[in-house]
Design a protein around this nucleic acid. Sequence first.
DNA 1: GTTATCACTTACTTTATGTAACCTAGTTTA
DNA 2: TAAACTAGGTTACATAAAGTAAGTGATAAC
Lengths: 109, 109
Amino acid sequence: MKQPTICPKFEKAITLLSQRWNALVIYQLLPGPQRFSEIQSAIGISGKVLSDRLKELEHQDLIKREVIPETPVVIEYSLTEKGKSLESVLKTIETWSQEWMKPDDEKSH
Amino acid sequence: MKQPTICPKFEKAITLLSQRWNALVIYQLLPGPQRFSEIQSAIGISGKVLSDRLKELEHQDLIKREVIPETPVVIEYSLTEKGKSLESVLKTIETWSQEWMKPDDEKSH
DNA sequence: GTTATCACTTACTTTATGTAACCTAGTTTA
DNA sequence: TAAACTAGGTTACATAAAGTAAGTGATAAC
């Protein structure tokens, strides 16, 4: 029902980046490792969905989860090489947004 | 409930690109104008959601809708300058995907 | 021993997306 | 002339994804 016009790798990348929160989570981790609650409050995602996303992104080898056996135990999320490599994409989006987006002060359309 | 750590323009761009189908619709229009049913069958989106997306993207001045008074009437969607400027973003994603994604032959995780 | 925090999970609600049938206008087919 | 077809949608209904809020288990502070 859908001819394979689009490159599967590209489509997979688009699916990844089009999934809500994924790009923001990666973006948030660019400066360095962060903990669950830091990510959560920084981007305003619900705990439930963040939990899902972190698992999925870990599964896709974009981030890694590290349990640091301090006392109390600390859990840190950080980008893998693959995750870090998305910086180029995010920077391009950032550049584009500076050029073309107006901040929506006008909440009422 | 969310400190304004993230640039609003960037966040708006991310919201745009994170909305399902938006990137693919723009991508599909990069080579030139297309009609409703062409876009629909090319990317496998439902008519309902495509209708929504086209309106929204038009409202955001990324695409334009043109009624061509042939017989029968033809409706063409094409990118505006702002829409075309997203090519840089999409190309970066494409490049990234070629380097880092493996096509998911392994549908069973 | 009550209260608090972190990193979640679970149950439930709301929103987004998908499916399929229908609509309007023009067009061809019989 | 009527039935059927096409393009570009819209509407009603079903399912999937996301949000909300409360709960859990481990540890620690008061």
